[in-house]
């Protein structure tokens, strides 16, 4: 059986929906770092059936809104001395700025660099956001 050792200091992203791990790994550009990173896929899970897990052997800055947008099922654990010192359940962000682009081709945010699209959540179920400039609805697809 494959064994992955515990990390001493860093971040563990747990309860990632199976299949999302590689997308998040790539979005966080973890393939470019020079410290240890583990991507575990389809790990058996009591609550989820199977899940993905990412272990990062370092403390890095992560945009939690962005991560919550990608997968709000994630639990983020901060590890220090091999122990979890902080646990945080992510949620779908109510407001996002600069993370997604407006689907409306007539929206000013798609043609002017000064206009950074900001959105407000209108449906958590469908991951739909209303653009603050044109008010059109954009559905976020991870």
């Amino acid at each position: 059986m494959l064994e992955v050792h515990s990390i001493q200091r860093g971040i563990v992203l747990d309860h990632i929906v199976a299949g999302n791990g590689l997308k998040i790994f790539n979005k966080l550009m973890l393939d470019k770092v020079d410290f240890s990173v583990f991507l575990l896929m389809n790990v058996p899970s009591q609550s989820m059936g199977k899940k993905d897990v990412i272990k990062i052997e370092n403390k890095i800055d992560i945009d939690l809104d962005f991560l919550g947008l990608m997968d709000h099922h994630i639990t983020l654990n901060i590890i220090e001395g091999g122990q979890i010192i902080q646990k945080r359940k992510l949620t779908i962000p109510r407001k996002v700025r600069g993370l997604i682009s407006c689907h409306n081709p007539r929206c000013i945010t798609n043609s002017d660099d000064y206009a950074q699209a900001d959105f407000e959540l209108v449906s958590a179920e469908k991951l739909e956001y209303r653009c603050g400039y044109c008010e059109e609805i954009t559905r976020y697809i991870p």
Binding site: N104, R106, C107, I108, D112, Y114, G132, Y133, C134, E135
Partner: peptide, 26 residues
Amino acid sequence: HPKEGAPKLASQYSLIPVINGGDGGH
């Protein structure tokens, strides 16, 4: 302006009152 949200963008940088005279289909 033909682009939707353009007058709002202008208002964010303006020192004088901006009135939207019509922005696209918005």
